[in-house]
Design a protein around this nucleic acid. Structure first.
Lengths: 232, 232
DNA sequence: CAACTGGCAACTGTTGACAGTTGACACTAA
DNA sequence: TTAGTGTCAACTGTCAACAGTTGCCAGTTG
């Protein structure tokens, strides 16, 4: 339980348990690199650092294991998950499956006003060529994708896309972004938006597929995985 | 720790923790209806019934919350998740997104022997018209879908399909299966397999899309949800 | 020298107890 | 009667201690 004081109001008891807070803190620590891939989580030390006992910490760890950010071995504790080349490809494919379907749904479901809203977000990010968006181009790109997926109106698909993007973030955020690729990506986004606004299912689907293929190929090259394949 | 004795061998200490076992037991209890949707889980009573303390039980609950089978409210405990019509549609769409993409990958990746193996499974289930498969037609159908998805060689997509099927199982397993629909489904499966074996990407994709659309429409009618829509 | 063994420290898995919250019920007052 | 209040049992959230396992290292043996 945490006491909060906002604007001189009476203290308000926040109904957020330690285990929930810890879950969020831990997720952030994995995503921002405070905990590096492969690193082991010492429950005693970590709970002490967070000022809680091991119970809530262990519950939080279980949740993150379910999200694929951590892994546990019996009696050997939790590790930050390391990314094998194969897994990165699989994550990309999973994301592609969801986003392709989402775009197709969005063609039929998105309202005109929603389409305009997302289109404006895209225009803002491309209007200012020299002016890099604050959280970095990669975050901006992921954000646009997420906005696009939301247009499908399917919360389960949205949530899973978010999870895939989170899992892709640690390895990708450590690699430099080629400015040329960023520019190409924006152009590809615009092609998707154009097709969406003309309600062309085939067009939007094709544009998105093209973009996802380019995006994946580029990432694999940057990560030095272009030779890896999933062929059995 | 559990002692196990198989075939007169020396007792073997299984390295499976209570929390892992509890996770599996609890999942089974939700899926087979021992715990009914909306039912509240009393931690004290449940841990006593399982012969463990509340710690491991709570960890297991967190895992199942992550899988979408349970839900928790602060200081009010865990509930078996109830299925709103909207959620069922969303689950179907999510599954469709993954299976459609999986089939397209399978066209390029599945080996001939794997295709034959899955084809044989399908033949066996359709060869014996009067002879119902043991676990019931719905389980057989889900099993075939899962086999199909595995052909894509993407473990993340496979795992997520499995999770979607698990979440769809509780509401669907309670409804009767129309024998005519079961027969149609098998025919549709065969159309998918035929296209797959001739390595026709467009054909397999179209056949799968058709099948998924029919399957979803049928389920919604059976569940009395045919009027529900996700249009925004 | 290499392989094995025993013991130890560090850590995870589990437990039982305590603290705080919730929902229901009985009681009171308008 | 009905709205409001106080009380309490039942329950969840958290903690600290205990029990069991693992990995390491020194010592031993061939």
């Amino acid at each position: 339980m945490v006491d909060v004081n906002v604007g001189g109001r009476a203290p308000l008891k926040l109904n957020v348990t330690y285990s929930r807070q810890t879950e969020a803190v831990l997720r952030e620590m994995v995503l921002d690199g405070t905990l590096t891939p492969g690193e082991r989580l010492n429950e005693v030390a970590l709970s002490a650092a967070l000022g809680i006992s091991r119970g809530p910490l262990r519950e939080a760890i279980q949740k993150l294991v379910g999200e694929g950010l951590l892994r546990v071995q019996s009696h050997r504790g939790a590790y930050v998950r390391e990314y094998e080349p194969r897994e990165i490809i699989e994550l990309y494919e999973m994301r592609a499956a969801l986003e392709l379907y989402a775009v197709r749904l969005a063609v039929e479901r998105a309202s005109d006003t929603d389409l305009e809203r997302v289109h404006n977000i895209l225009l803002q990010s491309s209007d200012s060529p020299g002016h890099q968006p604050q959280p970095g181009p990669y975050v901006a790109e992921l954000d646009f994708h997420q906005q696009l997926v939301e247009l499908a109106g399917n919360s389960i698909i949205s949530a899973n896309c978010l999870e895939m993007n989170r899992r892709l973030y640690p390895p990708l955020s450590r690699t430099p972004r080629d400015p040329q690729r960023v520019q190409n990506a924006v152009a590809e986004h615009q092609r998707v938006m154009t097709a969406l606004r003309s309600r062309s299912r085939a067009g939007a689907s094709a544009a998105m597929e093209q973009h996802l293929a380019n995006s994946m190929r580029n990432s694999l090259v940057v990560l030095g995985l272009e030779t890896v394949t999933l062929e059995s």
